[in-house]
Nucleic acid binder design. Structure first.
Length: 808
RNA sequence: GCCGCGAUGGCGGAACUGGUAGACGCGCUGGACUUAAAAUCCAGUUGUAGCGAUACAGUGCGAGUUCGAUUCUCGCUCGCGGCACCA
């Protein structure tokens, strides 16, 4: 039994003392930048699932160092945000203090796992020296017109008098007090991420080393759709409604028009609408429902007909009825749709409910599928469509768009699902927005010399009753001078969302102390982009899209030299509880890594977490598995007590094959099979030891194995390395190379099949020919049995693998 | 509803370009060592039949392509993740 606590403590302090993991700066070496998504340091500490990704990147980083790279492998903390703020409100502690405590706790938990982070580059998004540059970038965006003010709805709890995040809602009600949550529009800062939609979409093609599934999620999130805008006049007025549709080919089947209830046009037409009271009542009723609930698929569609107004179909001149309905969203497209119930499912459902006319205009080979029973939503051939009748849908769309353009009644249009990014929160614990509001000059940006704009100390972290940030209550902070005219001005009191700090932290690690610029150009050129980025799939869209957007902006203003921040991306699969549910206090299935380290050691925990299954896949925890990993390490340790050796060519060959496989598997992040390959080797060595009381190869060869084990089990490997008389750390040693000549087999196991079923297998020389193979096969008793009285039709010979004899 | 991913022994999983299904680990069964237990070591462990050689069945279900399919194609079922009335 080796004493894991002693060994692990010894090496952790030795590594630290020797500064073993500081980032290399030998300019002649190639670089490798491998990054974990940095954690939010919550008070609860880590559970056993959190380090899975960190272990994997640590293994990769250690291998790259041994392969002679300068490796940048940093860690930091994303420490702004709601949980720290809520904790502060509850316990009346400055979040600064509680965050520092959580960070210390997290670091402690990470340290005992033996990670090779360069802690001198630690970043913390709440550090003013850090958020100075978050603010600086925001200012640049504002200067370029990418940040604008807009009234955007928030979830408002009228009883708590506070805005709520989506996470704080339960069935559309306030989680804390259970009141109905309202949608309250409030002045906010919004970033025009939509300006970057096309680039964010197209540049996914430049990322071949991203998992396809994540790219697909991003494509769906950006949601490009090509269609047309068509202008409907409102009969008897000067007003018009523009609708967006991807199916302009169905417009001859349009039997009514639907506006989003919030569409401004509804208010403009107030006097024309004869049933305004009914409409107003309906609009008000929707305020009580969040967008999430309102747009839930299970909910039945509702709406109100706007009596007294009609819309004119630009193609037919026909007047159609106008509705407002909950299924049309003001935030997508133009907030208005032309309804074609014959060819759209939602319109069909709505038309059925309210008894509206359904007119088919698309046929499939002259037939109209499901007429009167359901909507036919596929492309087909147009009919009842005047001069466009007889055209196929795709062709018709082109011609009809030209028609719209020629008649100035619309145009082809590309629409994106992605919305502009609401970039402000009415909270205390976030980056202050570096703008002031001056009566004379309007909105004015702070000069760079006044950055960072520090978060002031406050008495209370509670949001104000008006929905404004607590910062609004600090009058000597809010009241300031206009940087432009020197007159009276007020500071912006919204703060930035938690996402802000995580948009560029990977750049800060490269140049963590820079106070002159966001990043030094030379350093950026050497270290950027991040070669390998690893983190949870829950960030597939939001964080990764926001960061890509932020980075592209920095590229556009010349602050960085590369257009995409992360070259390669992998997502880590969750570790679920032993009961198959997500680890959570609620289920009582949380396993603490500290307990595992105490019991079996960090090395065993590391090996087990890599061994338990494919990295990307979710997997159930099993504490017995750690015991198995420990047994494996114990076996390795027991081999160090043997001093005799006699060479065994087969096992030496296996050693070289294992060196090859482990390197390949780490490279492709198949860490489970890397561990299993090492187990197979160790089992072989151990069996040999038991039989011969000797190792099957020299101590030097044995140390090659210890070197490939080292990234997985760094403490034990370092201990064995030292005990074998090595003076320098194993992590300074050079990654072992396999010898090509030793992995070549002279014989192999030839499979003999008859009609595709295996009937025999035999050990044959590697270069065996088909004729020789057949000769050896046909003398096998069990093969003869299956060939007797049969005619051989053909033979399939796969060199190095099998011979299949097909008989009749 | 749409998009993506997946389904292999008692359990986690392996099988890389279509070529021995079940590597490796856990668990379990039997044995050795021990006064005993733990640890360790040895043997076995997909199912059915058989003392055995071996045979048959078998990778969620149903078809198909192929000499040969866990792997490819088509159609389903179930599970997970994401988005969700997106016009």
């Amino acid at each position: 039994m080796y004493n894991h606590s002693e060994i692990e403590k010894k090496w952790q302090s030795r590594w630290q003392k020797d500064n073993l993991y500081l980032t290399g700066n030998d300019a002649s070496k190639p670089k490798y930048y491998i990054l974990d998504m940095f954690p939010y340091p919550s008070g609860a500490g880590l559970h056993v699932g959190h380090p899975k990704g960190y272990i994997a990147t640590d293994i990769f980083a250690r291998m790259r160092r041994m392969q002679g790279y300068n490796v940048l492998h940093p860690m930091g903390f994303d420490a702004f945000g709601l949980p720290a703020e809520n904790y502060a409100i509850k316990n009346k502690v400055n979040p600064k203090i509680s965050v520092a405590e959580s960070v210390a706790r997290f670091k402690g938990q990470l340290e005992i796992l033996g990670f090779s982070y360069d802690w001198e580059r630690e970043v913390n998004t709440t550090d003013p020296d850090y958020y100075k540059w978050t603010q600086w970038t925001f200012l640049k965006m504002w200067e370029k017109g990418l940040a604008f003010e807009s009234n955007e709805p928030i979830n408002w709890c009228p009883s708590c008098k506070t805005g709520l995040a989506n996470e704080d809602l339960e069935d559309g009600k306030c989680e804390r007090c259970g009141s109905e949550v309202e949608q309250k529009p409030i002045r906010q800062w919004v970033l025009k991420i939509t300006d970057y939609a096309e680039r964010l979409l197209n540049d996914l093609e430049k990322l071949p080393d991203w998992e396809e599934s994540i790219k697909e999620m991003q494509r769906n999130w950006i949601g490009k759709s090509e269609g047309a805008e068509a202008i409907f006049k409102i009969a008897g007025t000067e007003e018009t409604v523009t609708v967006f549709t991807t199916r302009i080919d169905t417009i001859y089947g349009c039997t009514y028009l639907v506006l989003a209830p919030e569409n401004q046009l509804v208010q403009k037409l107030k006097t024309k609408i004869t049933n305004w009271e009914e409409a107003a009542e309906y609009i008000e009723s929707l305020d009580k429902i969040s967008e999430i609930e309102r747009t839930s698929a299970s909910k039945e569609k509702t709406g109100v007909k706007l009596k007294g107004i009609k819309a004119v179909n630009p193609f037919t001149g026909e007047e159609v009825e106008v509705f407002i309905a909950d299924y049309v969203l003001n935030s997508y497209g133009t907030g208005a749709v032309m309804a074609v119930p014959a060819h759209d499912e939602r319109d069909y459902e709505f038309a059925k409910k309210y008894g509206l006319r359904i007119k088919s205009v698309i046929s499939m080979d002259g037939e109209i599928p499901f007429e009167g029973k359901a909507a036919f939503t596929d492309d087909g051939t147009l009919f009842h469509s005047a001069e466009f009748s007889g055209l196929k849908s795709a062709e018709a769309r082109k011609k009809m768009i030209s028609w719209l353009e020629n008649n100035k009644l619309g145009a082809g249009k590309i629409n994106y699902r992605i919305k502009d990014w609401v970039f402000s929160r009415q909270r205390y614990w976030g980056e202050p927005i570096p703008l002031v509001h001056c009566d004379k000059c309007g909105v004015v940006g702070l000069p760079e010399s006044e950055l960072p704009l520090r978060l002031p100390e406050v008495e209370s972290y509670e949001p104000t009753g008006t929905g404004e940030s607590p910062l609004a209550a600090i009058s000597d902070w809010v009241n300031t001078k206009c940087p432009k005219c020197g007159g009276v001005a007020k500071r912006e009191t919204n703060t930035m969302p938690q996402w802000a700090g995580s948009c560029w932290y990977y750049l800060r690690y490269i140049d963590p102390k820079n106070s002159e610029a966001l990043i030094d150009k030379k350093l950026e050129k050497y270290w950027s982009p991040v070669d390998f980025y690893v983190g949870g799939a829950e960030h597939a869209t939001r964080h990764l899209i926001y960061a890509r957007f932020w980075h592209k902006f920095l590229f556009d203003i010349g602050a960085v030299a590369y257009e995409e921040p992360f070259t390669k991306l992998k997502h880590v699969g969750l570790i679920m509880g032993e009961d198959g549910r997500k680890m959570s206090k609620r289920w009582g299935n949380v396993v603490n890594p500290d307990d595992m380290v105490k019991k079996s050691g960090a090395d065993a925990l590391r090996v087990y977490e890599m061994f338990m299954g494919p990295f990307e896949q979710a997997c159930n925890w099993n504490t017995n598995g750690v015991v198995g990993a420990r047994k494996f390490l114990e076996k390795v340790f027991s081999l160090t007590e043997v001093n005799n050796y006699q060479e065994d060519a087969k096992i030496i060959s296996l050693l070289h094959k294992t060196i090859k496989k482990v390197a390949e598997d780490i490279e492709s992040f198949r860490l489970n099979t890397a561990v299993s390959a090492m187990m197979i080797l160790v089992n072989e060595i151990s069996d040999y030891k038991v039989r011969n009381n000797a190792l099957p190869f020299s101590r030097a060869d044995f140390l090659k194995f210890i070197q490939i084990l080292a990234p997985f089990a760094p403490h034990l490997s370092e201990e064995i390395w030292e005990k074998s008389g090595q003076k320098n750390s194993i992590f300074i040693s050079l990654w072992p190379q396999f010898e090509e000549s030793k992995i070549k087999d002279e014989t192999f196991n030839l499979i003999i099949q008859v009609n595709g079923k295996m009937r025999a297998s035999l050990e044959v020389a590697a270069g065996i020919s088909e004729v020789e193979a057949f000769a050896s096969a046909s003398v096998q008793e069990n093969v003869q049995k299956w060939l007797a009285d049969k005619e051989i039709i053909k033979k399939i010979f796969v060199p190095g693998k099998l011979l299949n004899i097909v008989v009749k």
